[in-house]
């Protein structure tokens, strides 16, 4: 538990950086994450001018283009509040790569470093800053958790999602084989090397399904886009009307479990 959580210093206000993937493809996940934070008694501020952390260009070998986009985000968080990011991957970009990206820009370097210190991945913030304890109001349910490589290896927050799910009284967390292996998304990797990426997501979906879990949850929508996209494609190929592996962002799952009269 962080110092802040131990001493009960809960921030009254936080910024929310949704990420471009959540804004456009998983808006419900963003809304649910905000709602959860609000129910924990925190005022959530959503800077309207936010776009993308810049990671797609950065990892594709175009740091200049990434820098232009990242520079825009640097200006969005004037108050000294935590910045909550519902994605380990984008949080990793802002926390660990922004300082490198602006290392040769004296004007922005300090800004990037200050912002970096305030970046929190969503599940890490819930567990280690808020000490949030979910009260499970749902029925018996088995889920499987997929943790992104950035959350695991860059942010080191692979245990917080597991803890949150583990705290739900009626939820069983299934264990998949090769849990720590990449789902094969990797941003433009999935487009540039579709054969390898396709093989990786195929294996990932197989191992998630083999657990018999009712759904997959993840704190990263990039992985979900890939995993659910393949699972749905497979369903289509094999003529299934119902999704064989439904899934959602962990914020949506947690919110539903902690609401009155919730189902699964």
């Amino acid at each position: 538990m962080s110092e802040q959580a131990k001493t009960g210093q809960r921030p009254a206000d936080v910024y929310f950086f949704a990420t471009c993937v959540v804004d456009q493809f998983f808006p419900g996940a963003g809304l649910d994450a905000i709602t959860l934070l609000e129910r924990a008694g925190i005022r959530v501020h959503f800077p309207e001018e936010q776009t993308c952390c810049g990671q797609p260009a950065y990892t594709s070998g175009f740091p200049d283009e990434a820098r232009k986009v990242a520079a825009q985000q640097l200006t969005l968080f004037p108050n000294d509040w935590p910045v909550i990011v519902p994605s380990g991957s984008c949080a990793g970009m802002m926390k660990h790569h922004y300082p490198t990206l602006f290392a040769n820009d004296p004007a922005r370097k300090a800004q990037a470093e200050a912002l970096s210190a305030r970046i929190h991945e969503f599940t890490d913030f819930l567990v280690n800053v808020l000490g949030w304890q979910p009260e499970d109001k749902g029925g018996e349910c088995t889920v499987v958790l997929h943790t992104s490589c950035s959350a695991r290896r860059e942010m080191g927050v692979h245990l917080t999602g597991r803890k949150l799910l583990g705290d739900l009284a009626h939820v069983t967390v299934a264990q998949q084989d090769h849990e720590s292996e990449c789902c094969g998304f990797g941003g433009t990797f999935s487009i540039k090397q579709p054969e390898i990426s396709g093989a990786m997501v195929e294996d990932k979906v197989k191992s998630l399904k083999a657990t018999g879990a009712e759904r997959v949850v993840s704190a990263d929508c990039g992985c979900l886009m890939n995993i659910l996209g393949h699972a749905a494609w497979k369903d289509r190929q094999e003529g299934r009307a119902q999704p064989s592996l439904p899934g959602e962002h962990i914020a949506s799952f947690l919110l539903r479990r902690t609401e009155e009269r919730s189902g699964k």
Binding site: D23, P194, G198
Partner: peptide
Amino acid sequence: QGPWTTVRVPLKPAPKRLRDML
């Protein structure tokens, strides 16, 4: 959608963005 849809369903933006929902 080219390489993406060789083993995945097409990507489709949600009808409302997070900012619209907010």
